[in-house]
Design a protein around this nucleic acid. Structure first.
Lengths: 290, 290
DNA sequence: ATGGTTCTGTCAATATAATTACACAATTAA
DNA sequence: TTAATTGTGTAATTATATTGACAGAACCAT
């Protein structure tokens, strides 16, 4: 009996002549709503095709499977191939390196992370976040954890170029109460808290929430405990073949947000940016190196 | 409990905040390969998510189903709808947003950047960079420009966890001569210089090169002038539909490098990292907030 | 640190699914 | 028509999946 990996549909077609009356009846039901009808229990399938369960089991054998569960596993396997995005199946990224090279494995993984993050990211919520951050009537404070401080800093740098009233909260939590004092009701706190969630950030979030501050939380797929206090949160997929987690997807979202804010407030920020560029030009003169 | 007919994915998202740690872990596995991973037995799913079977059953209840089989039936039902609906497209990133939404445009663009960057990235050179950075006989200094300082800082933070002799050079270029003094022949300088290349960085690179320092330069597709002085350089694609450039691809390569260094020097860095983690645990006690 | 609370896994019980054995039905060849 | 053959369903058996009870672990507030 063939133990190849051809699809169930293929096997049914190839072996159709050898099938008996009841089996053909069953085969047609399977093909009719393929492959979903084959994914329930053997009993359900048998009832659906109006044959007995042993008929189903026998046919699975006849098609070369060890039994019904084996055939079902094959169906699931096929389904997976059908459903997954062809983009992720891009076989190689760095052409001159083997598939197993870290660059290729990393690339597959990151794309997968991005895809799964975006699949479940709510676009309406994204837009709300952009609106909140564009609103210059309220100040924006940015805070990050041990490893995510860099993301906070990256975001801050760009925000600062676009608008007034943006603060980067220092890494050292002993100074946080001071920052808290200056946050008023309606102000916005952008927080980063990834795996190995930090106590201090949770406390900070709770206290900020108590003051009526709106919190935008960037966290991972499992969710920081600070989520309880957050107005909006974005979950990024962060797992990669590494000892550490990946910030790539979060960075991606930050950039998309920055871009959205920018295009939304282009008129008001255009001058600001030009002015800023001019200042940098000028300051360069002072910084003659050596 | 709601007995509506919303999708499992929907329910997971709506109820995510109410889910516990193990449940979130499970939820992510379900969403990761949706809906296929949920179509096997409860046992298989539990193993896949590394939780116990009762956790799976409990979550199904929590999401408003009568039990696991009921949830599974819903998954099959959804699948049927998805498969028979020819309009379901898999070529969108954020499914609930229009093609023209910034998230989708950004995603297309970033993937393109990644693809083109990797296409022209030399794997052998990548490996040489990894080897250079793994070599603890020489020190590593990291320096960035106005906007790329965050990348420098991100890289530094991770390098510091893996090995000794890593320095982050401050943003302010007036102090750079001091850093230069401590760089000896054979030492490694990691430099970031993207579009709007900075004079100071170029000078710094030249002087470092004169001292026999090996320079690893991260730059954009057009190449920083500091490339003349660099031993190795990596060009990332940085253009996106935004006023600013994207750091996503560079971040990706940094993480791949970090991962490669890590797995190469796992034996020697394992203890270091454990020790570090222990120290962080301890210091947490001092950091009681408020 | 400590006691209370919530979470989560192990194990046992129960329910369901899948297979086997077998008897009868249908089909075919003489 | 009838004996042989093949096909099919029922019922029993076995295997597997699912759920429930509980106890230890983790977490949280004090």
């Amino acid at each position: 009996m063939s133990t190849d990996d051809s699809t169930v549909a293929q096997r049914i077609h190839d072996g159709f002549d050898r099938l008996t009356r009841a089996e053909r009846q069953l085969a047609n039901i399977i093909l009719e709503n393929y492959p979903v009808s084959g994914l329930g229990s053997i009993t359900a399938l048998a009832e659906n095709a109006e044959v007995s369960t042993p008929t189903v089991a026998r046919m699975a054998r006849k098609l070369g499977f060890g039994g019904f569960p084996e055939m079902q596993a094959q169906l699931r396997h096929e389904l997976e191939a059908t459903i997954s995005d062809p983009l992720t199946k891009h076989d190689k990224w760095a052409a001159d390196a083997p598939d197993t090279h870290i660059l290729n494995r990393f690339a597959d993984n990151v794309i997968d992370n991005l895809r799964n993050t975006l699949k479940y990211l709510n676009a309406a919520e994204f837009d709300k976040i952009v609106a909140l951050l564009s609103d210059t009537k309220h100040t924006v404070a940015v805070v990050g954890g041990r490893l995510s401080h860099t993301l906070a800093s990256y975001f801050f740098t760009h925000m600062q170029m676009m608008r007034d009233g943006v603060t980067l909260i220092e890494r050292n939590s002993s100074s946080w109460p001071h920052y808290l004092l200056s946050l008023k009701e309606g102000d916005v706190l952008v927080m980063f808290d990834m795996r190995r969630y930090e106590q201090d950030l949770l406390r900070f979030a709770e206290m900020a929430q108590a003051r009526g501050v709106k919190i935008i939380l960037f966290t991972d797929q499992w969710g920081s405990p600070a989520g309880k206090a957050a107005t909006h949160q974005i979950h990024s997929r962060i797992e990669v073949p590494s000892t550490w987690d990946s910030s790539v997807v979060t960075m991606f979202i930050l950039e998309a947000i920055i871009s959205a804010i920018q295009s939304q407030s282009w008129e008001s920020s255009k001058d600001r940016i030009e002015e800023l560029e001019a200042l940098f030009e000028k300051s360069r003169l002072f910084r003659k190196f050596v």
